[in-house]
Amino acid sequence: MAEISEALTRRVAELARLRLSQAEVTQFTGQLQQILSYVDQIQAVDVTDVEPLIYPNASREAADSSREPAFRADRVVEPRNAADGSPKVLEAAPEIHEGAFQVPQIV
């Protein structure tokens, strides 16, 4: 079984773009170790020749070979403001500038 060290917790948190305090690192390391030692029961299960189930309706859709792929019209249905016609999607943005999403300069 994988041993969860504080360094591994930090490394994985970094991959997930989460910054943890030292208290969180300590707490999560213990909890992850506990959860992993539980889920490790699956290692003992014999899965020889078992296809992984990624998506529940995969076999149904594969069996229905007559089915045509679903196409819909290539039509823009972007919600816009009644007042000025600007895209509503910008209203939820933390910062916008001249009709674009604005972010801090990072290069």
Binding site: A13, R17, L18, R19, F28, L32
Partner: peptide, 20 residues
């Protein structure tokens, strides 16, 4: 990382486990 600091502890725990 600063933006994602808004996640609560259970979400962080699961994201770390999932990323692992």
């Amino acid at each position: 990382e600063h933006a994602r600091a808004a996640f609560g502890p259970e979400v962080k725990r699961r994201l770390i486990l999932g990323t692992f």
